[in-house]
Design a protein around this nucleic acid. Sequence first.
DNA 1: CGTTACCCCTGGAGGC
DNA 2: TGCCTCCAGGGGTAAC
Length: 275
Amino acid sequence: MPELPEVEVCRLGLEPELLGAEIRAATVRQPRLRHELPASLPATLAGQQIVAVRRRGKYLLLDCQRGKEVGSLIIHLGMSGNLRFVPLDQAPGKHDHVDLVFAGQILRFADPRRFGAVVWYAGAQVERHPLLAVLGVEPLSDDFTADWLAAANARRSGPIKPVLMDGHLVVGIGNIYASESLFRAGISPLRAANRISRQRYELLVPAIRQTLADAIAAGGSSIRDYVHSDGGAGCFQIQAGVYDRAGQPCLRCGGPIRQIRQAGRSTYYCPACQR
DNA sequence: CGTTACCCCTGGAGGC
DNA sequence: TGCCTCCAGGGGTAAC
């Protein structure tokens, strides 16, 4: 479900509610997520004040403080996770695994497939956590340039699409936006990463930036009192040029969109427009 | 080192 | 109605 734009929209929705708020209590109903939650987590979280709401790749970071002690709650939504605010008395559903209880509401983490994660990092530099330390550059930062990407891919002979999805290189680009960005740049998802010219990387990098930024803008415009990661029927997918459009006409040339499988994931592209 | 296959898990869709 | 298969926006690990 969530790629970088969805997580960023989630962060934008959380920030005004959580900044400065105190976690009164925490409830864990299902500790078996991607990483098993320690039994001590509720006690660790109780009394923490949230001092920052950040994002790194597809991870949400809630920086916390309790007296002199600092730490961060690392949250990943996996494929099917979502966070929403619910009333204090709302009964939990089947897949509502973790609650953060605040004075007037509960922030509830639900995740049917349990690929998501809730991890505590004790200390001031959460970036040093093993999950975060290995992450690549932020695609919306100044570090993400055509020069850098071309150099990073100089020895990669595999197809570009799975490379874009490798978070050790560049974070946040998931299966939808990898296809969408390549369509926007006119580059075939099958093209070897090291056989893309510098000039075409000059197209690809802005295409990725624009695709992600557009999605954030589309999602950010509909934030309310909850954090929606429901992209399925939501605003994110409406503008898809190729994703999930197999057999339908290309919006640029009218030819049929093709669906293939790369590294176990579906890829969509226009064989006429993308070379 | 780069690349791929498989696995984690549940639910929805579609075929029979 | 049930059962089966396949698919799903992520990512870690093992193996080639």
